[in-house]
Design a protein around this nucleic acid. Structure first.
Length: 254
DNA sequence: ATGGCTACGATCCGTAGA
Protein backbone atom coordinates (compact mmCIF):
# COMPACT_ATOMS: atom_id res chain seq x y z
CA UNK A 1 0.00 0.00 0.00
CA UNK A 2 1.34 3.37 -1.03
CA UNK A 3 0.06 6.11 1.26
CA UNK A 4 0.68 9.82 0.69
CA UNK A 5 -0.10 13.09 2.41
CA UNK A 6 -0.22 16.50 0.77
CA UNK A 7 -1.25 19.92 1.98
CA UNK A 8 -2.55 21.29 -1.32
CA UNK A 9 -3.31 24.86 -0.14
CA UNK A 10 -6.62 25.14 -2.05
CA UNK A 11 -7.95 22.04 -3.78
CA UNK A 12 -9.59 24.16 -6.48
CA UNK A 13 -6.34 25.84 -7.50
CA UNK A 14 -4.24 22.68 -7.16
CA UNK A 15 -6.57 20.17 -8.80
CA UNK A 16 -4.54 19.96 -12.05
CA UNK A 17 -1.33 19.37 -10.07
CA UNK A 18 -3.10 16.79 -7.95
CA UNK A 19 -4.55 14.77 -10.80
CA UNK A 20 -1.23 14.86 -12.69
CA UNK A 21 0.54 13.70 -9.57
CA UNK A 22 -1.94 10.89 -8.90
CA UNK A 23 -1.40 9.59 -12.43
CA UNK A 24 2.36 9.68 -12.01
CA UNK A 25 2.81 8.56 -8.38
CA UNK A 26 -0.04 6.03 -8.35
CA UNK A 27 -0.72 6.11 -4.60
CA UNK A 28 -3.35 3.79 -3.12
CA UNK A 29 -4.50 6.41 -0.65
CA UNK A 30 -3.85 10.14 -0.21
CA UNK A 31 -4.53 12.41 2.73
CA UNK A 32 -5.17 16.01 1.68
CA UNK A 33 -5.17 19.14 3.83
CA UNK A 34 -6.17 22.76 3.39
CA UNK A 35 -8.86 22.08 0.81
CA UNK A 36 -10.27 25.58 1.46
CA UNK A 37 -13.52 24.54 -0.15
CA UNK A 38 -16.98 23.64 1.08
CA UNK A 39 -18.28 20.11 0.56
CA UNK A 40 -20.77 21.18 -2.11
CA UNK A 41 -17.84 22.26 -4.30
CA UNK A 42 -15.64 19.22 -3.69
CA UNK A 43 -14.47 17.88 -7.10
CA UNK A 44 -15.65 14.34 -6.49
CA UNK A 45 -16.38 13.57 -10.14
CA UNK A 46 -12.98 14.78 -11.37
CA UNK A 47 -11.22 12.62 -8.78
CA UNK A 48 -13.40 9.64 -9.63
CA UNK A 49 -12.37 10.08 -13.25
CA UNK A 50 -8.78 9.95 -12.00
CA UNK A 51 -9.55 6.63 -10.31
CA UNK A 52 -10.10 7.74 -6.72
CA UNK A 53 -12.98 7.69 -4.30
CA UNK A 54 -13.21 10.49 -1.75
CA UNK A 55 -14.09 10.99 1.87
CA UNK A 56 -13.96 14.63 2.87
CA UNK A 57 -14.78 17.23 5.49
CA UNK A 58 -14.52 20.73 4.09
CA UNK A 59 -15.45 24.29 4.92
CA UNK A 60 -15.37 27.59 3.12
CA UNK A 61 -12.01 29.45 2.89
CA UNK A 62 -10.12 27.61 5.64
CA UNK A 63 -8.93 24.14 6.62
CA UNK A 64 -10.67 21.12 5.10
CA UNK A 65 -9.34 17.54 4.84
CA UNK A 66 -9.94 14.56 2.58
CA UNK A 67 -8.86 10.98 2.04
CA UNK A 68 -8.69 9.73 -1.53
CA UNK A 69 -8.44 6.00 -2.16
CA UNK A 70 -8.57 3.51 -4.98
CA UNK A 71 -10.46 1.06 -2.75
CA UNK A 72 -13.71 2.20 -1.14
CA UNK A 73 -13.05 4.06 2.13
CA UNK A 74 -14.76 2.35 5.07
CA UNK A 75 -15.87 3.53 8.54
CA UNK A 76 -15.52 7.19 7.59
CA UNK A 77 -15.56 9.60 10.50
CA UNK A 78 -14.58 13.24 10.86
CA UNK A 79 -13.35 15.35 13.74
CA UNK A 80 -11.93 14.34 17.09
CA UNK A 81 -14.45 12.46 19.23
CA UNK A 82 -15.19 14.44 22.38
CA UNK A 83 -13.50 17.64 21.15
CA UNK A 84 -15.95 20.19 19.81
CA UNK A 85 -14.32 22.10 16.96
CA UNK A 86 -15.79 24.15 14.13
CA UNK A 87 -12.59 23.76 12.14
CA UNK A 88 -12.46 20.80 9.77
CA UNK A 89 -9.07 19.28 10.53
CA UNK A 90 -9.53 15.52 10.89
CA UNK A 91 -11.00 12.76 8.77
CA UNK A 92 -10.50 9.03 9.15
CA UNK A 93 -11.28 6.05 6.96
CA UNK A 94 -10.29 2.41 6.72
CA UNK A 95 -8.55 1.63 3.43
CA UNK A 96 -7.28 -1.84 2.51
CA UNK A 97 -7.38 -2.86 6.17
CA UNK A 98 -5.43 0.18 7.40
CA UNK A 99 -7.02 2.83 9.59
CA UNK A 100 -5.95 6.07 7.90
CA UNK A 101 -6.30 9.26 9.93
CA UNK A 102 -5.75 12.48 8.04
CA UNK A 103 -4.86 15.49 10.16
CA UNK A 104 -4.39 19.19 9.57
CA UNK A 105 -2.92 20.34 12.86
CA UNK A 106 -3.33 24.03 13.78
CA UNK A 107 -0.64 26.46 12.72
CA UNK A 108 -0.38 28.22 16.07
CA UNK A 109 0.51 31.61 14.55
CA UNK A 110 2.86 32.79 17.33
CA UNK A 111 4.08 31.39 20.62
CA UNK A 112 1.85 32.65 23.41
CA UNK A 113 -1.05 33.62 21.16
CA UNK A 114 -4.60 32.36 21.50
CA UNK A 115 -4.07 30.20 18.41
CA UNK A 116 -0.97 28.70 19.99
CA UNK A 117 -2.99 27.69 23.05
CA UNK A 118 -5.59 26.18 20.74
CA UNK A 119 -2.84 24.25 18.95
CA UNK A 120 -1.61 22.70 22.20
CA UNK A 121 -5.15 21.87 23.38
CA UNK A 122 -5.88 20.39 19.95
CA UNK A 123 -2.79 18.16 20.12
CA UNK A 124 -3.80 16.93 23.59
CA UNK A 125 -7.26 16.03 22.27
CA UNK A 126 -5.77 14.34 19.21
CA UNK A 127 -3.49 12.26 21.45
CA UNK A 128 -6.45 10.99 23.50
CA UNK A 129 -8.36 10.25 20.32
CA UNK A 130 -5.45 8.32 18.79
CA UNK A 131 -4.95 6.31 21.97
CA UNK A 132 -8.53 5.08 21.64
CA UNK A 133 -8.23 4.46 17.88
CA UNK A 134 -5.05 2.42 18.37
CA UNK A 135 -6.94 0.05 20.67
CA UNK A 136 -9.36 -0.77 17.88
CA UNK A 137 -7.01 -0.60 14.89
CA UNK A 138 -3.58 -2.24 15.19
CA UNK A 139 -2.86 -1.26 11.57
CA UNK A 140 -3.06 2.52 11.78
CA UNK A 141 -1.46 5.51 10.06
CA UNK A 142 -1.69 9.18 11.03
CA UNK A 143 -0.77 11.30 8.05
CA UNK A 144 -0.91 15.01 7.53
CA UNK A 145 0.39 18.47 8.14
CA UNK A 146 1.42 18.49 11.81
CA UNK A 147 2.81 22.02 11.74
CA UNK A 148 5.64 20.88 14.01
CA UNK A 149 9.25 20.20 12.98
CA UNK A 150 10.20 17.37 15.36
CA UNK A 151 13.94 18.06 15.61
CA UNK A 152 16.49 20.69 14.64
CA UNK A 153 17.56 18.60 11.64
CA UNK A 154 14.04 19.17 10.31
CA UNK A 155 14.67 22.94 10.20
CA UNK A 156 16.76 24.75 7.58
CA UNK A 157 18.10 27.29 10.08
CA UNK A 158 17.56 26.06 13.65
CA UNK A 159 19.18 29.14 15.14
CA UNK A 160 16.85 31.53 13.33
CA UNK A 161 13.84 29.39 14.23
CA UNK A 162 14.79 28.75 17.85
CA UNK A 163 11.76 29.10 20.11
CA UNK A 164 9.47 30.07 17.23
CA UNK A 165 6.14 28.54 16.44
CA UNK A 166 6.51 25.10 14.72
CA UNK A 167 9.69 24.31 16.66
CA UNK A 168 9.01 25.55 20.22
CA UNK A 169 9.56 23.03 22.98
CA UNK A 170 5.88 22.76 24.05
CA UNK A 171 4.92 21.95 20.45
CA UNK A 172 7.67 19.37 20.13
CA UNK A 173 6.63 17.89 23.47
CA UNK A 174 3.03 17.68 22.23
CA UNK A 175 4.17 15.81 19.12
CA UNK A 176 6.40 13.53 21.21
CA UNK A 177 3.48 12.71 23.53
CA UNK A 178 1.52 11.64 20.48
CA UNK A 179 4.41 9.58 19.13
CA UNK A 180 4.90 7.97 22.54
CA UNK A 181 1.55 6.25 22.05
CA UNK A 182 3.69 3.88 20.01
CA UNK A 183 3.74 5.63 16.65
CA UNK A 184 6.78 5.82 14.40
CA UNK A 185 7.80 8.68 12.13
CA UNK A 186 8.06 6.61 8.95
CA UNK A 187 10.51 9.07 7.37
CA UNK A 188 13.14 8.34 10.01
CA UNK A 189 12.97 4.58 9.51
CA UNK A 190 15.27 5.11 6.56
CA UNK A 191 18.46 6.96 5.75
CA UNK A 192 17.51 10.34 4.32
CA UNK A 193 19.28 13.21 2.60
CA UNK A 194 20.45 16.05 4.82
CA UNK A 195 18.09 19.00 4.89
CA UNK A 196 14.96 17.14 3.85
CA UNK A 197 11.92 19.38 4.14
CA UNK A 198 8.24 19.23 3.19
CA UNK A 199 7.35 22.93 3.25
CA UNK A 200 9.09 26.01 1.89
CA UNK A 201 8.00 29.62 2.30
CA UNK A 202 6.61 31.21 -0.84
CA UNK A 203 8.56 34.34 0.01
CA UNK A 204 12.28 35.01 -0.33
CA UNK A 205 12.73 32.19 -2.84
CA UNK A 206 12.36 29.72 -0.02
CA UNK A 207 12.30 26.67 -2.25
CA UNK A 208 15.26 27.68 -4.37
CA UNK A 209 17.27 28.27 -1.20
CA UNK A 210 15.88 25.07 0.37
CA UNK A 211 14.79 27.23 3.28
CA UNK A 212 12.18 24.83 4.58
CA UNK A 213 10.78 22.80 7.41
CA UNK A 214 9.78 19.15 7.67
CA UNK A 215 6.31 19.44 9.18
CA UNK A 216 4.32 16.91 7.13
CA UNK A 217 4.54 13.41 8.52
CA UNK A 218 3.26 9.87 8.14
CA UNK A 219 3.20 8.13 11.52
CA UNK A 220 2.66 4.39 11.72
CA UNK A 221 1.44 2.08 14.48
CA UNK A 222 3.85 -0.67 15.58
CA UNK A 223 2.28 -3.33 13.37
CA UNK A 224 2.15 -1.01 10.37
CA UNK A 225 5.68 0.34 10.91
CA UNK A 226 6.97 -3.23 10.54
CA UNK A 227 5.49 -3.23 7.03
CA UNK A 228 7.06 0.10 6.00
CA UNK A 229 9.39 -0.32 3.00
CA UNK A 230 10.12 3.30 2.10
CA UNK A 231 9.31 6.87 3.07
CA UNK A 232 10.10 9.84 0.88
CA UNK A 233 9.27 13.43 0.04
CA UNK A 234 8.42 14.20 -3.58
CA UNK A 235 9.73 17.70 -4.28
CA UNK A 236 8.75 17.67 -7.95
CA UNK A 237 5.29 19.26 -7.61
CA UNK A 238 6.86 22.13 -5.65
CA UNK A 239 8.86 22.99 -8.80
CA UNK A 240 5.79 23.62 -10.95
CA UNK A 241 4.17 26.96 -11.73
CA UNK A 242 1.75 28.06 -9.00
CA UNK A 243 2.65 25.24 -6.61
CA UNK A 244 1.40 24.43 -3.14
CA UNK A 245 3.95 25.51 -0.54
CA UNK A 246 3.98 21.89 0.70
CA UNK A 247 5.32 18.80 -1.07
CA UNK A 248 3.66 15.37 -0.95
CA UNK A 249 5.14 12.90 1.54
CA UNK A 250 4.88 9.18 0.79
CA UNK A 251 5.20 5.92 2.71
CA UNK A 252 5.02 2.45 1.18
CA UNK A 253 3.87 -0.60 3.12
CA UNK A 254 4.19 -4.25 2.14
C1' DA B 1 14.59 45.33 8.71
C1' DT B 2 9.49 40.92 11.57
C1' DG B 3 8.91 42.25 5.46
C1' DG B 4 9.27 39.32 1.54
C1' DC B 5 4.15 35.21 -1.32
C1' DT B 6 -0.32 32.98 -2.08
C1' DA B 7 -5.34 32.11 -1.54
C1' DC B 8 -9.67 33.68 -0.19
C1' DG B 9 -13.63 36.71 0.03
C1' DA B 10 -15.16 40.58 -0.66
C1' DT B 11 -12.56 44.51 -2.86
C1' DC B 12 -9.54 48.15 -4.48
C1' DC B 13 -7.47 45.56 1.52
C1' DG B 14 -7.80 42.35 5.57
C1' DT B 15 -7.09 37.59 7.32
C1' DA B 16 -4.46 33.55 7.43
C1' DG B 17 -0.95 30.47 6.54
C1' DA B 18 4.07 28.81 8.39
Amino acid sequence: MKLASWNVNSLRVRLPHLTDWLARAQPDAVCLQELKTEDAKFPRAELEAAGYQSAFAGQKTYNGVAILSRSPPGEVSSGIAGFADEQKRVIAATVDGVRVICVYCPNGQAVGSEKYDYKLRWFAALTDYLAAELKHHPQLAVAGDFNVAPEDRDVHDPKAWEGQVHVSEPERAALRALIELGLTDSFRLFEQPEKSFSWWDYRMMGFRRNAGLRIDHILASPALAKRCRSSTIDKDPRKLEQPSDHAPVIAEFS
